[in-house]
């Protein structure tokens, strides 16, 4: 079984036997992998019809859900119902990511997110020299057709965590092939194309 490397990285962060909620679970690859390799239980939330059918086929629990329904948040779930709430490559598509991050930590003990880093040198070059929104393997699609409406840099995300009282437990920075190179560890906000974070509420 080949697994997208970012998903493989995430699954290493997850304790076997955990109960997890996957926000925007796509075709259910991560949940199916975690179920098969780490005896993880839980639910995937997804809005796309084809993805829901795929999830049902692969035997995971999928619940149709619109993450952009701000009034709802994750109110369908109780406090601390999950060990982890995961959201891969969706934070930048959400209407109110700050609210959703807090919701993730209301229903889950820990949160895990991944997103494209807008501070990557390629983005800075595109904006700084050509004066255009960047288009790259990490950020495919023109500005007018992309789902990404709340792009941020690593520093932006970490500042938001600080403001909202979130404690970052683990960070990983990778390229589109999900490899970590030396320069990324040195200057992650400049050289990392994708960021992976694990976080929790800062202990009072």
């Amino acid at each position: 079984m080949t697994l997208r490397t970012d998903l493989a990285l995430i699954s290493e962060w997850i304790e076997p036997g955990s109960h997890i909620l996957d926000l925007g679970c796509g075709d259910g690859t991560l949940l199916a992998y975690l179920r098969d390799t780490r005896q993880v239980t839980g639910y995937g939330l997804e809005i796309n019809e084809d993805n829901i059918v795929q999830c049902v086929k692969s035997g995971i629990n999928v619940i149709q859900f619109d993450l952009n329904d701000l009034d709802k948040g994750l109110c369908d779930f109780n406090e601390n119902a999950f060990d982890y709430v995961v959201m891969t490559q969706a934070l930048q598509t959400i209407g109110h990511p700050n609210f959703l991050l807090m919701e993730m930590l209301r229903v889950g003990k820990q949160g895990i997110v991944t997103f494209p880093n807008f501070g990557h040198w390629g983005c800075r070059l595109s904006l700084g020299f050509s004066g255009k929104m960047p288009v790259s393997p990490a950020l495919p699609g023109q500005w007018y057709e992309t789902e990404n409406i709340h792009l941020c840099t690593l520093r932006d995300f970490e500042n938001l965590c600080e403001e909202q009282g979130l404690e970052i437990l683990q960070r990983s920075v990778v390229d589109p092939d999900h490899r970590t190179r030396f320069m990324m560890t040195l200057l992650p906000n400049l050289f990392g194309e994708f960021a992976l974070y694990r976080f929790q509420r800062r202990p009072q």
């Binding site: 109960h19 639910y43 049902v56 629990n61 619940i63 149709q64 369908d76 779930f77 109780n78």
Partner: peptide, 19 residues
């Protein structure tokens, strides 16, 4: 239907749902 789904997830039961 979502009330039923919510009750099931609160008990960690296996459930899939689509509207």
């Amino acid at each position: 239907s979502e009330e039923i789904v919510r009750a099931l997830t609160s008990q960690k039961k296996n459930v899939s749902y689509m509207a």
